[in-house]
Nucleic acid binder design. Structure first.
Lengths: 123, 123
DNA sequence: TATGCTAATGCAACTAAGTTGCATTTAAGT
DNA sequence: ACTTAAATGCAACTTAGTTGCATTAGCATA
């Protein structure tokens, strides 16, 4: 069972809350906000934030804020860029767009903002 | 006086609060958070947010959230990428890095996250 | 399988960003 | 100067995220 292994690999205690949280994040293809998640979890929000924060420092989870001023969390399976549409506010994972290079910097995450394909088409 | 003109160009009323806010944003080279600004302004925070929101919809101001979970605002003179360092949390305006292209999308803003030059050097 | 230690959790209280309704004020055209 | 709609200040509110503390639950050891 991969969720349990993910936690053990980082030498973290395998708790019900952690399994539940990673289960939800990995079952969705899209980044989720706390609002998206809160009704699906049984843990307290303090536990949610403490675990998210631990997952982030262990590079298991990545987060960024979208146009709606909400923070979105996702499992960091492999680094990929995100596109946030200023038109429809949709978030897309650009799994085929390679992370760009920038001299002297190490780029670990990229967020593009603008108009997505369908908003451009129907503009 | 360019601040007054900036406001008039968008057919907005030239108020003390708007002039003050744009004055502060344009006097800094870096994006500023509400916390950075709040002690420098005399307007109420409701007025601050209402004006920021109006400026954003008129494309006079751009905003994004940083690693510290605070939103940063800046005058949008010309579009440019930002680099947020996961090490030192510093925000850099990459004025010479052109916005990348992405087929079918219109990219209006880019945020890179990772390690900046000096954090890479001293690591 | 029982024991014990530490980390994880739940709860409550808190902080701070951002929003909204409403009464008052002010910019700007006549 | 007069008028009117828009902008402002104030207060109350919502919600994300944090923190302290008492309790609980992993997990290693015996």
């Amino acid at each position: 069972m991969q969720i349990k292994n993910m936690i053990e690999e980082k030498n973290l205690k395998v708790t019900t809350a952690r399994k539940e949280l990673l289960e939800i994040l990995s079952s969705e293809k899209k980044p989720l906000s706390f609002e998206d998640i809160k009704d699906k979890i049984s843990m307290d929000k303090a536990t949610f934030y403490r675990n998210i924060s631990k997952f982030e420092s262990e590079s298991m989870v990545n987060s960024f804020e979208s146009n709606d001023k909400k923070r979105y969390y996702e499992i960091q399976e492999f680094p990929h860029a995100h596109f946030i549409c200023n038109g429809c506010s949709n978030i897309e994972c650009l799994e085929n767009a390679p992370l760009p290079k920038l001299d002297g910097y190490t780029i670990m995450d990229v967020i593009y903002k603008g108009m997505c394909k369908s908003c451009n088409a129907t503009q």
